[in-house]
Design a protein around this nucleic acid. Structure first.
Length: 304
DNA sequence: CCCTCGCCCTGCTGGC
DNA sequence: TGCCAGCAGGGCGAGG
């Protein structure tokens, strides 16, 4: 980000977009280092809304054929000249609704991020938008685990990735009763069940580890055998870890609106994630093991 | 249906 | 200093 300017990658087929300097304070959406999970998607959507809501898409450039899967064939035509009516989020997907009753859906995968007013286009700026008032936004995704789709707004709920999704974790539908019902008779570990988007939509590895730690539940506990009392702790723990992170990200955005702000990333302070060997506040030690091919962090002493 | 596993992809890190 | 194996993991398809 602060290295010497790199050559601008070619923009296949759509011509190059002018890249201009900026006077507006930049959001930190392009410097976040944490894995994009639900709170990061939420703060990204809120940040993008300031640039996109009510704006016309003057130009959109697609610089390679695919991310995880091909870009929608009609994307450029569908978005060029459309006006963004609203931004939204479902699970870890960001939603850009347009006045053409179509919604552009993006997923940030492992490494996706939106760069606001980039001074130069960089490697991995796979999709670039210029708005009617001249703002430039670039979707950068080095690992290309992300995706971009285009769906009729009316049919969003039937879009296959959304059709079978469970409730939003921050909504009223996520209750201990919902979890008890969804997890009944399930023998897989609770941690893996919480990563299943059909049970709850939008939880990823980091927040599941953190929520189970706060709720004092062993990650390898058989999901169907987690007690009612434990589920009663788990639901507020999930909501707290997510909303605290969104709040931290939100304050980052607010800081950017203020000229004095010296900003870092919103420093996520995980209690267990990535902290193997560190002391747990309870006096125990954070352990790591692999579940379903992913790292689980937990404390044997306070998670039963 | 339920469950587990491996693949995709690239940048960074640690060991030698 | 350079090289390379290993690691990160969401979503999805294959297979038991």
């Amino acid at each position: 980000m602060h290295g010497p300017p790199r050559p601008t990658p070619g923009l296949h087929g759509t011509g190059s977009l002018p890249v201009r300097g900026t006077r507006a304070p930049k959001l930190d959406l392009d410097r976040r280092r944490d894995m994009p999970e639900l709170p990061e998607v939420e703060t990204t959507v809120r940040g993008l809304a300031r640039y996109l809501e009510g704006e016309r898409i003057a130009r959109i450039a697609v610089n390679r054929p695919d991310l995880r899967r091909p870009f929608p064939p009609g994307l450029v035509q569908a978005m060029t000249g459309a006006t963004v009516t609203a931004m939204g989020r479902r699970a870890k997907y960001g939603l850009i609704h347009t006045d053409r009753e179509q919604t552009m859906i993006f997923h940030l995968g492992m490494s996706g991020r939106w760069r606001i007013e980039p001074e130069t286009l960089e490697k991995h700026d796979h999709l670039v938008i210029e708005t009617g008032s001249g703002h430039v936004l670039a979707l950068n995704d080095a690992r290309r685990f992300g995706s971009v789709d285009l769906v009729d707004t009316k049919l969003l709920d039937q879009w296959p990735p959304f059709a079978a999704m469970g409730p939003e974790p921050l909504g009223d539908e996520l209750t201990p009763q919902h979890l008890a019902q969804a997890l009944r008779h399930r023998i897989a570990p609770i941690k893996q069940m919480l990563l299943d988007q059909r049970i709850v939509a939008g939880l990823g590895n980091i927040y599941v580890c953190e929520a189970l730690h706060r709720a004092h539940i062993r990650p390898d506990k058989e999901a169907g055998r987690v007690s009612k009392a434990a589920l009663g702790r788990l639901v507020p723990a999930i909501k707290q870890v997510l909303s605290e992170s969104i709040e931290a990200g939100g304050s980052t955005i607010r800081d950017y609106a203020q000229p004095s702000g010296e900003l870092g990333y919103f420093a996520a302070s995980w209690r267990v994630y990535g902290r193997e060997g560190d002391a747990c506040p309870c006096g125990g030690t954070v352990q790591r093991f692999v579940q379903g091919g992913r790292s689980t962090f937990w404390c044997r002493k306070c998670q039963k």
